[in-house]
Each structure stands twice: as C-alpha cells, then as structure tokens.
C-alpha cells in the first residue's frame, strides 16, 4: 500500500482528469519594498482517495500552499481546481462557501473554538454546511466516538489535553464529509506517542471514509502513511522516494 512511489519530474504530477489539480501556481509576498517569491509555477495533481505528504522546511511555503488549496488565500497566478471547480476564479465569498462544504482542516494548534464544547465543535461544520437533518447530532457524536471521545462531548477545549483536542479537530474535519482534508503539522504540538496515535487515527479514518488528504509537515515519520511524498523546495515540488529507513 505504501510502496508505489517513484521519482518523477514535476510535469508528471499533472494529469488532466485528476481530482485536485494545481497548475502553474505562483505566490509571492511583499516584505517592505522587496517581493519574496514563495511558490513559483508550482504544479500538482492528486487522485481521489490519495494521501499526499508535503514535506518542507519552516518557511518553505507549505502553509501558503494549503491556504491556496483551501481558498483561504488567492494565487498571484495559476489555477487551483478541486473536484472540477476552479477556485482561482472565485470571489472570496464563493471560496468561503466552497471551503465549508468541501474542505476539512486539521491545524497544528488544533484551533478549536474555545467557546463551544467538543461535540459542538464537531457539529459546527455540519451546521455551516447547512445540513438540517435531524440526525446531525448523531452524526457528530458518531465521529466523536470514532476518535474515542464519545464521553467527552460536553467538555470545553480547555478541559481537554492536547491529544484530545487534536482528536476533536480530526472528528471536526471529517464530520461534514468533505472532498479534501488539509492537515498542517497535525502532530507538531504533540509528544511522540500521542503524535503516533493521532496519526494512526487520522490515517485509518481518512482511508476508511475514502477521503483525499494533504498533510503538510517537516516530520519525516509521517511519510510512512503517505501514498506519495512531495517536498516543497525553492517554490517548486519535488517527488521524494521514501524508504523504510527514512521512516525508521
């Protein structure tokens, strides 16, 4: 399952009918008078159900890339197509509406809403998506059960440990059944053991639900769950052949 990676040049990331397609993405930031290029005509295609690990040093542009994929930010040029929808043409509001329907987030610092209980946090994307079925609470509860926090639904985030908060965040990212899950350093704030548990949970739940996922990290350990590993360097993506040695 983990062993189908081969080295390709960047053009080979492209596939016309890919589920997620990034084409010639360019993004730069202004720093005073100077402009710093973060992404430079970057290309990537991701198949449905594929799990991509995005490696890169701090400041290499991983978060920028995730922001562009999620529609939080807009590229200077290039295309972001998700499930056939081009985000780069959309206005801010439409991108937001797209995001809440089709994208789930797992952040490094969990980013739970402190004023909502664990269950309500999981419920939030369902409510935002506009699901009105009577069973959305059961649905949220089911996802909370999946991350083994079924009995902590009434707890507020500040009553949960870091690992527990991240499990709530995973349940939240999956609850509204998005097309794509974006995880930004999901284990970065956790100890090794907890990190492993979280990763296993994320891996099995995403695969079980058949979701596509991009995980940005600088932790090589995470590569072991990936279908494909790419590294962001100099504003472009490079394929990485990951071996068991790298993992261990």
């Amino acid at each position: 399952m983990f062993g189908r990676h081969t080295t390709k040049n960047e053009n080979e990331f492209m596939a016309q009918d890919a589920h997620i397609q990034l084409k010639d993405l360019t993004k730069s930031y202004k720093e005073g008078d100077k402009s710093r290029s973060v992404l430079d005509e970057l290309n990537l295609s991701v198949e449905e159900g594929e799990m991509i690990v995005l490696l890169g040093r701090s400041g290499s542009g991983k978060s920028t890339l995730l922001n562009l994929v999620s529609g939080i930010d807009k590229p200077d040029s290039g295309e972001v197509s998700i499930g056939g929808t081009d985000l780069s043409d959309m206005n801010e509001k439409d991108r937001t509406l797209f995001r809440r329907k089709h994208i789930g987030f797992v952040f490094q610092s969990f980013n739970l809403i402190p004023t909502l209980t664990a269950l309500e946090n999981v419920l939030l994307p369902l409510k935002l998506k506009g699901e009105t079925d009577g069973d959305i609470i059961e649905k949220a509860q089911r996802y909370l059960d999946e991350v083994e926090l079924g009995d902590r639904g009434d707890s507020y985030p500040d009553r949960l440990s870091g690992g527990e908060q991240q499990r709530v965040a995973i349940a939240r990212a999956l609850a509204h059944e998005p097309m794509l899950i974006l995880a930004d350093e999901p284990t970065g704030n956790l100890d090794y053991e907890t990190g492993r548990t979280i990763l296993d949970m994320l891996n099995s739940l995403v695969r079980q639900n058949g979701r596509t996922m991009i995980i940005a990290t600088h932790d090589q350990d995470i590569c072991q769950i990936a279908d494909r590993v790419v590294e962001l360097k100099g504003g472009k993506l490079h394929n990485v052949e990951h071996s068991a040695a790298a993992v261990e």
Partner: peptide, 14 residues
C-alpha cells in the same frame, strides 16, 4: 484568533 478559526472553517464575512 477565534474569528480567524471560524473563517478558516468556512464562516463567511457576512
């Protein structure tokens, strides 16, 4: 921060 999180989750400006 909280507003940022809500916006990231797909809450619109309005």
């Amino acid at each position: 921060q909280l507003i940022g999180r809500l916006r990231a989750l797909g809450t619109t400006k309005n």
